[in-house]
């Protein structure tokens, strides 16, 4: 990693996009599951939590990257945690000031962003080894990927669980909500269902590639 300092790799589209799909923190790396499931019973909460995490992720990545040459190895984790906790506290106050309702809905889970392994993981494995701009771009990607995942969960849960989206009724009065979706089991079921969908798509793609190869071999 030492030579990373000497030969910085250029920022590519991939630096940003990687976090959204290929290394999606929730669906692929299975990190940060606690907020991903706990607060996604409405789309609003999902967006709030996603943006809060994005903010903490970007800020802490920037600061860690900035200080990366100053922080001694032995105390790096402690430093990262303090930095992250700082930004989480800031977000906590900010949300409290912006919307009481959102603050009450998210509850302790805003503060629990500290324990979200996505953020510490980024600081440790990326920001501490890369230049500020690159770290920030990467953190942005990861943060948006995280928010995207939360939205995937939140939308399904809100639409099925209360028949609304962002609080607006979708199907009218007569819709029977599937309450289980906004309850804890629903969180598990919805993320399980998404993962099933992804692995089904992946398998289908692989099967298609295999088939193509076979036909290619047969004809060639």
């Amino acid at each position: 990693m030492a030579d990373l300092h000497h030969k910085p790799t250029p920022i590519t589209m991939d630096t940003f996009l990687r976090g959204i799909w290929k290394e999606n923190p929730v669906f692929v790396m299975l990190l940060g599951l606690c907020p991903a499931l706990a607060v996604t019973n409405t789309t609003m909460n999902a967006i709030g939590m996603g943006l809060a995490t994005l903010f903490v992720l970007v800020c802490s990545s920037a600061l860690v990257s900035l200080l990366r040459s100053v922080i001694p190895k032995q105390v790096r984790i402690a430093s990262y945690i303090v930095i992250i906790a700082t930004f989480v506290t800031i977000v906590d106050y900010a949300i409290h000031a912006i919307s009481l309702e959102l603050y009450n809905a998210l509850g302790a889970f805003i503060q629990l962003i500290v324990a979200n392994c996505v953020i510490l993981g980024r600081a440790e494995s990326y920001a501490s080894k890369n230049r500020v701009t690159k770290s920030v771009v990467n953190a942005f990607g990861i943060g948006i990927g995280f928010t995207f995942a939360l939205l995937c969960l939140g939308t399904v849960r809100e639409v099925l669980g209360s028949g609304t989206i962002l609080g607006y009724s979708l199907f009218g009065e007569s819709f029977q909500p599937w309450v289980v979706m906004v309850l804890p089991p629903g969180g598990f079921f919805v993320i399980g269902a998404w993962l099933l969908l992804f692995s089904w798509l992946k398998e289908r793609k692989q099967r298609k590639i295999l088939k193509q190869e076979e036909t290619a071999r047969a004809t060639g």
Partner: peptide
């Protein structure tokens, strides 16, 4: 090590206090 940690603690303390002081009246009012 102490210097670095102290520096980080100072930065974070400053940030937190600033934000807390700024948002406190807004939160109270709400």
């Amino acid at each position: 090590m102490i210097r670095t940690l102290g520096l980080i603690a100072m930065i974070s303390g400053l940030l937190v206090v600033l934000v807390a002081r700024y948002t406190e009246p807004i939160i109270k009012e709400k």
